[in-house]
Design a protein around this nucleic acid. Structure first.
Length: 479
RNA sequence: GGGGCCUUCGUCUAUCGGUUAGGACGGCAGCCUCUCACGUUGCAAAGACGGGUUCGAUUCCCGUAGGCCCCGCCA
């Protein structure tokens, strides 16, 4: 049994404790990431503790890979949990202990109905158009005769009258009539606890004071409250977040926005942009849109969480990511870009390329919304002479243009190699040719990058260095 | 079938009964400009529907419709 005192750590009196409790049956998707963010933010805001629990009681579907993905995803998002991770399955003995207590105080009972019997019961109820729920057939049965030869499950002897009220911080006061809540199972016939029981026990043992989770658990909250009441434990504060939908409004699934959080990393998004984006999906602070993590910690509250479901919107994520890219430190961005290049399976940058990346970073980061875009935009650094211009670039390299490039190359021979000096020289050259700057710059860009879109040509030249730049110009002038 | 939750521009949202219903993303148009991007100016764009309550409802109440969640020896 997991030592209870070890997982019930330090919360000081009055200190709040939140938790994120994913089940490792798949990757961490964007909805889970937002739930984790909100829990983390609230703990930070309140000077509390943010804990992580892996709900791995579904032995058939839980995988170590999923656990790893969740841990890595949270780490990338920068949502560091306090204390050690609690693994739910390891605490089964403790959960059984609570069931024994419930049994002893008459708040739970054994049910010998077989699964087939229950299926038949539900089928009958459905056919009769009646609500489908356990009918309590073993609730008050005194075992007078011989017991059926099936291992029993343990059910909660739930109240049958009155109502269970959840005072939710997001949804408001939600009432459930107790007669629509049946005697659900606490312990399976194989002796393993169910989710419903495990969450309650673990939250209690972990000292969780605020449960912030998905809307899909709202009805479960009522059942869990009944266990809490039966045990006489303190009631946690609930905040049920509206679910998130895919871009098309459909439920999140593998096909929609439900990419694993690591996919967002590979798509070139920055963690701080993700945090800002996720925060604004369901939470608001007046008209504020760009909210730093520090600011978010300062402002976050439960009252401002919206009640309606939201869709993921990549356009907005892109916009925010662009904002954070522009604001990012050049060196750090270069490191992030190189890491992504590595994950893409591409060879690492040479020392020269690394220096060029850093030099070009100011103009590079201004025109990329993601790191993937930035890497694509720096392709002029990767390409080797002689360049093969793409279709549009080829159009810019007319015969006249190539002839002019030849003259330009000569004009540039003795220019000091800095962007402003180069620009001045090219402008002078254009004037002498009685050409518009654009008519000189576009063929020049095509020759230097092989494309018609790039960072400012003068920056490109400065980045490339005199020798390489002049050689690329000569290549095209000669072609 | 039962219970619960939700509903403001295409999308995310603001509005604590009184606003020309605001902002952001995206879109369109212009400016800036060596391309792209940034920036900037402007434009189009919303209270699901029907009843109430009120001097006055996007806002409060009821109903309808639609969407979603739960009703499992999954979590």
């Amino acid at each position: 049994m997991a030592p209870v005192d070890r997982i019930r750590l330090m919360p000081a009196p009055g200190q709040i404790v939140t938790r994120f409790a994913p089940s490792p049956t798949g990757f961490l998707h964007i909805g889970g990431a937002r739930t984790a963010l909100f829990n983390w933010l609230y703990a930070k805001r309140m000077g509390g503790i943010f804990r992580l629990r892996i709900e791995d009681t579904d032995r058939a579907r839980s995988t170590p890979e999923a656990i790893e993905a969740i841990l890595e995803g949270l780490d990338w998002l920068g949502l560091q949990h306090d204390d050690e991770v609690v693994y739910q399955f390891a605490r089964a003995a403790r959960h059984r202990e609570v069931v024994d207590e419930l049994l002893a105080k008459g708040a739970a009972y054994k049910c010998y109905a077989s699964q087939e019997e229950l299926e038949a019961m539900r089928a009958e109820q459905k056919a009769a158009g009646k609500p489908m729920r356990y009918d309590g057939r073993w609730r008050d049965r005194v075992p007078d005769g011989p017991l059926p030869n099936v291992p029993p499950v343990i059910r909660l002897k739930a109240p049958q009258t009155g109502e269970t009220i959840i005072d939710d911080q997001v949804q408001g006061e939600v009432k459930f009539r107790n007669d629509v809540l049946d005697d659900f199972i606490l312990l399976r016939s194989d002796g393993n606890p169910t989710y419903m029981l495990s969450v309650v026990v673990d939250d209690y043992d972990m000292g969780v004071t605020h449960i912030i989770r998905g809307d899909d658990h709202l009805t479960n909250a009522a059942r869990q409250r009944q266990i809490i009441d039966a045990m006489g434990w303190p009631k946690p504060v609930y905040a049920h977040l509206p679910l998130m939908h895919g871009e098309d409004g459909a439920k999140l699934s593998k096909r929609h926005g439900a990419l694993g959080i690591h996919e967002y990393q590979n798509l070139g998004y920055l963690p701080e942009a993700m945090r800002n984006y996720l925060l604004r999906l369901g939470w608001s602070h007046g008209d504020d849109e760009t909210i730093s993590t520090a600011q978010a910690i300062d402002w976050f509250n439960l009252e401002s969480i919206g009640r309606s479901p939201a869709r993921v919107d990549f356009k907005k994520l892109n916009n925010l990511n662009g904002h954070y890219m522009r604001a990012a430190d050049d060196g750090e961005l270069a490191v992030a870009a190189q890491q992504l290049i590595g994950r893409m399976g591409r060879p690492p940058l040479t020392a020269t390329q690394e220096a060029q990346l850093l030099k070009a970073m100011p103009s590079l980061k201004d025109r990329a919304k993601t790191l993937v875009e930035l890497i694509d935009n720096m392709s002029f650094i990767f390409v080797e002479r002689p360049l093969t211009p793409d279709e549009k670039a080829l159009k810019a390299l007319s015969e006249d243009a190539r002839a002019r490039l030849k003259r330009l190359g000569a004009a540039l021979a003795d220019v000091p190699w800095t962007a402003p000096e180069i620009e001045a020289a090219v402008r002078t050259f254009a004037e002498a040719e009685q050409a518009k700057l654009g008519d000189v710059a576009q063929p020049l860009r095509a020759a230097l990058t092989g494309r018609t879109v790039s960072p400012p040509v003068f920056d490109v030249m400065a980045t490339l260095g005199r020798e390489e730049a002049l050689a690329r110009i000569a290549d095209q002038a000669a072609a």
